[in-house]
Nucleic acid binder design. Sequence first.
DNA 1: TTTTGTTTATTGAACGTTCAATCAATAAAA
DNA 2: TTTTATTGATTGAACGTTCAATAAACAAAA
Lengths: 194, 194
Amino acid sequence: MPKVGMEPIRRQQLIAATMAAIDEVGLSEVTIVRIARHAGVSSGIISHYFGGKDGLLEATMRQILTDLSQAVARRRRALKEQGARAQIGAIIEGNFDRSQISGPAAKTWLAFWASSMHRPALARLQTINDRRLYANLCYQFCKKMPREQAKNAARDLAALIDGLWLRGALAPEGLDADAARDLALAHLDRLLTA
Amino acid sequence: MPKVGMEPIRRQQLIAATMAAIDEVGLSEVTIVRIARHAGVSSGIISHYFGGKDGLLEATMRQILTDLSQAVARRRRALKEQGARAQIGAIIEGNFDRSQISGPAAKTWLAFWASSMHRPALARLQTINDRRLYANLCYQFCKKMPREQAKNAARDLAALIDGLWLRGALAPEGLDADAARDLALAHLDRLLTA
DNA sequence: TTTTGTTTATTGAACGTTCAATCAATAAAA
DNA sequence: TTTTATTGATTGAACGTTCAATAAACAAAA
């Protein structure tokens, strides 16, 4: 079995297995044996590549946040128009991108959200991501309204996105991404015409 | 030490200690020894009154949900006007009631939120509470708009409330209840005038 | 009023289980 | 032969639960 250059392959494999395991039994019940079994490898390999369970969990959260950033960035790059409405629309669509709404990713995210309240390493990642979303929204809204009003609009929309997301993760039937996106876009229009 | 009639006192004491402990180290790091130490009693007493750790956790979540229901019910009962706008306003204010936004309650709630994805007993409580909020909002919005539009408005507002709440629980500086309430109320007005 | 017996409240050490981490052993590849 | 990749049994710590022991409060009997 041993070949060279396995490191990047195993890392991706184990991160995916971590999401699957969290989706299956929840973050608090996840063990390294379970994750290893999901990936079809032995448990020892986790410490070898990630230094331990915590390292793997942090890498998994980092992956999820990176996926989200890229989903948003991709949509914004693909835009022809540069207006505020179009930019914010792309941010919304990116947040409900396919890679973000698959069962494993959704539940993993919510689990990390809760866990980040008490793990400084995860909280740091969480905060960085949060601030970027807020700053982007704020910048775009400022084009259309006074600064204070724009701040409120950004807070408002960020909360709605997170709320739709949260309720989708908790609902037994999962998140209806299309419906959620439509609600957020309608809300955006209301904010811009007010 | 032993006096009669300690049961209700100890139950409340232990539930409060559970919230404090979760606020301190997070749900996943909470041990019965830690909770017992918070309450100033021995660890054995938890199994005596709650049948075990899980029983105590479920009782704690039930307490939080009950507190919320009562905060909402109290505000609605105090209303003079019965209009949809006033009723929904009371629901919003109840959701940002003092008892709900104290540090321990906020973090405990988010922790249970995540945990309910994989614990049927907690998921049941969560679902009941959720459905009641949605049904109430839906009923009130229906007075002011067509049924399908009302459903969307209810989903919208419920998501915004949860989102504001979630971001408040995660923010290092905690939830600014007044600001959150104002955002939700402004959003309500936008929904009603659209 | 004292004595005796019963119930309620509580403790904390002991037990069995579970888990993350470690590491000696092994095998393919270079 | 050396390096890289991997295994899985083992270890030690941590946890929830159990339970025998204890003590206060109460009730009935003497």
